[in-house]
Structure formats: structure tokens, C-alpha cells
Design a protein around this nucleic acid. Sequence first.
RNA 1: GCCGCCGUUGCACAGCCCGGUAGUGCAACUGACUGUUAAUCAGUAGGUCAAAGGUUCGAGUCCUUUCGGCGGCGCCA
Length: 427
Amino acid sequence: MALVKISQILEGKCTEQKVTVRGWVYRKREGKALIFLVIRDSTGVIQSTIKKDSPCWNDAQKLTIESSLILTGTAREDTRAPGGFEIGAEAIETVGLAENFPISKDKSEEFIRDMRHLWLRSRKMNLVMKVRAEVLEAAREYFKKQTFTEVSPPMFISAAVEGGSTLFALKYFEQELYLTQSSQLYLEILMYSLENVYCIAPSFRAEKSRTIRHLTEYWHMEGEWAFADMNDLMAFEEGLMAHICQTVAAKCEKEFKELGADIEKVKAVKTPFPRITYKEAIQRLKPKNPALDWGADLGYEDEKVLAEDFGKPFFVYDYPTAIKAFYCKTYKDHPEVAMSVDMMVPRIGEISTGGAREDNKDLLIQRMKEQGLKPEDYEWYLDLRRYGTVPHVGFGMGLERLLVWMLDLENIIDAIPFPRTTRRFYP
RNA sequence: GCCGCCGUUGCACAGCCCGGUAGUGCAACUGACUGUUAAUCAGUAGGUCAAAGGUUCGAGUCCUUUCGGCGGCGCCA
């Protein structure tokens, strides 16, 4: 008798062997002389059959949906069983008898969200979380291969990275602090020691966005490196994206299939990505949106039009300086253009923003003042330009947005186990 | 921030336009059924119709306000 995972049985590795599985009751179908228990564990679901004359008949009868159990029986191939394999049960040890489980086949979005702590047991969430873990692993693999060092930036911060209006303020003893919106500025500090640095950490934004692609707490994959330019940046970003897509497509074929996600789209992600300038984007969009002139930010609708044209990830770069953050480096001969780049994907729009950082102290101060920021709030940031400044670039990619695109999810809340939106933060 | 939609039993919904006894399915409970695929069949029980106010002989239904939820745009990753 061997303790096995359900996936091993489904792969045909235990056929005609006596096995023990540990898990939970996923479905129960009861007849007069036959009970079907569908058992789930972390690796999959399998049906087990209990006959009336079996010593575990009484135990099986008492079991309820989501009860935990240890079940022993003979694994066999049977075309009548969903999945093609089943366990003929011989012994059942009930570990935790479940009360009437609130989630049934009839469920609304709203109810599922209220029951998040239980819904995470669903096949869908189980599969999404596995793919999420693979994306994280693949990302780390790529950063490491490119000689980046993973660092740990703070979540409590004293000054804004983006506009102050989207900051979460909180009481920190007797003072006011904020939750970080991006770790970029801290990566820049560490870059002066480690050169190539990255982090995978949460970012918090108090945007009252009501869309399927916004969270107030999301996971941000950010990188920053010294002695690099816009070409290096785009090459790195597309390399990262392609590596994640290729790795995940290779490892998660089963998950994509069960989720009904289009794996071919992910397999097709290869370098190089199409690159167009902001100016070219405006020209392309002009026929459809005549009101769009140079200087205006691209709206979500504009991004969607571009993205559908390409049908795959692509870059838009060289945006007007006026619509970009204070730290964006500008072109010497064209200060109205900033070295900024967005990666976009169909349906979602932006999944990443990056660019060259202003490395000249005086220009940086000037940009701060233009945007109404006080340079004295950023003394430490200015110090970075005082002591051995270097040209450098960086970017941030939204992990959940990436997952929404990869897995064709209907809403970003399903890309993270415990979503925080403007209205929801339970459990 | 602007706009739209929704709230009826544990869950999913109908009833609202056109006011007149609160309905169906799932789950629960009782029973039937040798292979089911979130089975099927018979039965039982389950309701402050989100809240408050108004109109009316009479409001789940019409009006007003509030609360809660979802989404579109804006903002962004």
C-alpha cells in the first residue's frame, strides 16, 4: 500500500495497485448499492466507488462535500469513470466531517467573492495559483540568468513615487507614512551597489478604478540596471516575457487545458516584439480617433485598437514628457519627448511601463518643480545623482495583468488569491 | 470622479412594464434507484422581497433617499 497523489493515479502509474490518497470530498453521488465519491487533493480529482458490501459503506454514506479523508483502495482503469481512472475503496478514515458546504453549482460572482476563503479550493483557483507560481519561478529564473540580484524594498515609504493622489496614507506611530506604489526608487538606490537588481513585491494604489484590470494591491515585478539604454531595456523586457511564456507553456499544458485557456497564443510569444513610437501610434490611431493629437495620453480604447492590430505583446515608446513621471529621462535635443516605454497586450492594454531614468541632478530638480514636487522631499534620491550618477533604465510589470492575459481570465481578481479592490478586502 | 446595471428563502432565478394570496430549480431533510459524470424520481420544510420614507383601500411591483454589490470610462501595472 502506497501513499500517492491523485495525479499519479491519473497518469496510470498505480493501476491495479493498492493505494492510499489523502484529500477532500469534491463530489458525492449516491445510489442504493453504490456510492461515488470524487476526491480532490492538490494535484487533481479522482472518482472512487464504494459498493454496498464494502466495509467502508457506512463511512462513505456519512461523508459530506468537502469532508477531509484518507482513502485506501485499488486503483484501476475504467472508461466509465471521469478521467478514465478510479479507486475501488476498501477503507475510509474520515478526518474532518464537513458541515453543509455553502458553495454549490448555483453561484453568482458576488457570492463567490464573499466565499473567497472557500472558493480558493475550487479547481479553477487551484489551477490559476499553480500557473501563477510558475510565472514567478520563470521570472526569477530569467532575472538570475541575466545576473540580476533579487532585493527586498520597503513597503512603508515616506514620499510618493507616482502622483500623491493615489497614495494610501497610514498612521505610523505619531507620523504619517504611505504604502509604496512602486519599488523603483529603492531599486535605484540598490543599483549603485549591485548594478542589476530586481524585486517581486506588492505595490499599493488608492485608485478608485472600477475595471476588470485594477487591484489596489498588486504584485509588481520590477527591475533596474546601470549603464543601460532604451534598447537594452526593450530587449530585456521582451526576453523576460518570452522566457515566462515559453516556460509556463511547457510546464502548464494541463492547467491551460483544464482552464480552457489558449496556450497557442502563449507559445507564440517570441522575441523580437513589434516596437512603435508614440508618434507612430498616434498616426495609426488618427483615422479611428481624429481627436487624438500629439501630447494626449493613449486611452484604454486606443490601446485596445493597437493591441488588436498586433494580436500579441508589443512596445510603444518615446512618449511626450508632459504625461510622464518626473524621473523620466528626456532626449537632449527633444526635451518634449521622454524615454519611456509601455508593453501592451491584447484585451488588457498596458502590462508594463519602463524607461530611462533622469541621471542629471539639475534636470531632475527642474522636472520635480515642473510637476509641483518638492526636491527637499527627495534628498536621498538626488544624492544618487550627486555621487557617481550613471545612465540607467528600469521597468515594472504587473504580475496579475500578465496572468489575466495568459489565462484569458475574465477579471484580475482571479489572478491573485486574496484580491483587494476598492470595495473588497475580505478575508 | 462621471455613467449604467443589480439587491426576492442557504444558493441561482421568475414575479416589477400593467399594484390585488410569495413562485420555480439547486442545496437541506425523508424515501426510491447497480455505473453515476455537480445523476434521476417522489415528498417535507424553509421568506422582515436590502433599509427608511412616500403615493394608494392595498406596494416585491410606482416615487424619493440611503446602504451594499457589479461593470464601462477616466487614472494606471
